[in-house]
Computed example of a mutant assay.
Amino acid sequence: MSDGPILIFDSGVGGLTVLREARVLMPDRRFVFVADDAGFPYGDWEEDALTRRLVELFGRLIAAHGPIACVIACNTASTLALDALRAAYPQMLFVGTVPAIKPAAERTRSGLVSVLATPGTVRRQYTQDLIDQWATRCRVKLVGSVALAALAERYMRGGFVDEEAVLTEIAPCFVEEDGRRTDIVVLACTHYPFLVNRMRKMAPWPVDWLDPAEAIARQAERVVSTLGTRSISGDFDPAFFTGGEPDFATRRIVHGFGLRTR
């Protein structure tokens, strides 16, 4: 029986949405949350440099925390570096995050789907391959948002966001064509669900916003289901930030998710 934790990793606090769902599905598991805030935002990185950073960083994280599995709760990191991580650490179980294009294609009635993501995720061949595999009968619009992840981070820390700035980022998702309208927007970044209520408010018409968190957590549950269980302890699960001790607002956020920063 393994008593190692499940490591949930993101560039910022967006991965907390995945942690929340994972705890519901796996209440008998321990978790470690790691945010690479020193590298945030990943969209500013050159791809080879970011891949090298992630491979080196996970070597240290695996050695430090002894996880039974690592959940990459970040579309950019997953679509870029998941294969490199699996090659570098073949004994480790990795669960990645990919845009929910398949379920969007299955649910859409209008045939117009938008994928709201970081520019890096939009550029990946992996994303185009998902469209070619699962959504050939749909028109999929890829929308690369430069600012939305940072807006979500600021909203989580300060409780305020410029709604007009949110509208500017999501407006390209809404397409009208031959009497049809976009009816599904895939949230292809784990930060975005924190802003979904503001997105609903500012949207020009109602759509189904696909949150990836539950699907990621379910895949993690499937992956670790054969590895044994561990009774939950009374202590808080830890959160670590690569940039050092987080500020007060960030500590408040992670404490609200039942994590400790020391």
Results as ranks from 00 to 15, higher is better:
residue 80 L to P: 02
residue 99 P to Y: 12
residue 107 R to H: 13
residue 71 V to L: 07
residue 63 A to D: 09
residue 152 A to H: 11
residue 71 V to F: 08
residue 159 G to W: 14
residue 69 A to R: 13
residue 64 A to W: 00
residue 62 I to R: 09
residue 191 H to M: 04
residue 116 L to E: 08
residue 200 R to M: 08
residue 159 G to Y: 13
residue 192 Y to I: 13
residue 175 V to R: 12
residue 174 F to N: 11
residue 186 V to W: 14
residue 100 A to Y: 05
residue 186 V to F: 14
residue 150 A to S: 12
residue 120 G to T: 15
residue 73 A to N: 06
residue 109 R to N: 08
residue 130 L to P: 03
residue 98 V to I: 15
residue 190 T to H: 12
residue 131 I to F: 02
residue 188 A to F: 11
residue 77 A to Q: 09
residue 182 T to S: 05
residue 160 F to P: 00
residue 148 L to G: 10
residue 198 R to I: 09
residue 90 P to E: 12
residue 63 A to N: 02
residue 149 A to F: 08
residue 173 C to A: 10
residue 198 R to C: 13
residue 74 C to I: 01
residue 131 I to D: 07
residue 120 G to D: 01
residue 75 N to E: 05
residue 155 Y to T: 14
residue 180 R to G: 03
residue 196 V to P: 02
residue 175 V to W: 15
residue 158 G to F: 13
residue 113 V to C: 04
residue 128 Q to M: 00
residue 92 M to L: 12
residue 189 C to S: 14
residue 180 R to D: 12
residue 122 V to P: 03
residue 155 Y to D: 08
residue 109 R to H: 11
residue 140 V to T: 05
residue 64 A to Q: 13
residue 111 G to F: 04
residue 181 R to D: 06
residue 189 C to H: 12
residue 141 K to Y: 12
residue 136 T to K: 12
residue 126 Y to E: 02
residue 109 R to S: 12
residue 196 V to F: 00
residue 97 T to H: 02
residue 196 V to Y: 01
residue 138 C to I: 02
residue 116 L to T: 08
residue 149 A to P: 15
residue 146 V to K: 10
residue 113 V to P: 14
residue 121 T to Y: 03
residue 196 V to D: 09
residue 110 S to Y: 06
residue 141 K to A: 09
residue 86 R to I: 00
residue 119 P to M: 07
residue 155 Y to L: 14
residue 146 V to W: 08
residue 71 V to P: 11
residue 143 V to N: 08
residue 64 A to L: 05
residue 141 K to F: 08
residue 116 L to Q: 02
residue 153 E to V: 13
residue 83 D to W: 01
residue 165 A to P: 12
residue 111 G to W: 08
residue 55 V to F: 09
residue 128 Q to L: 00
residue 175 V to E: 12
residue 118 T to I: 03
residue 180 R to H: 15
residue 186 V to R: 14
residue 144 G to R: 12
residue 162 D to N: 14
residue 137 R to M: 07
residue 125 Q to R: 14
residue 133 Q to H: 07
residue 179 G to E: 08
residue 99 P to T: 01
residue 114 S to C: 01
residue 89 Y to I: 07
residue 111 G to K: 05
residue 85 L to Y: 14
residue 59 G to I: 07
residue 124 R to V: 00
residue 184 I to Y: 15
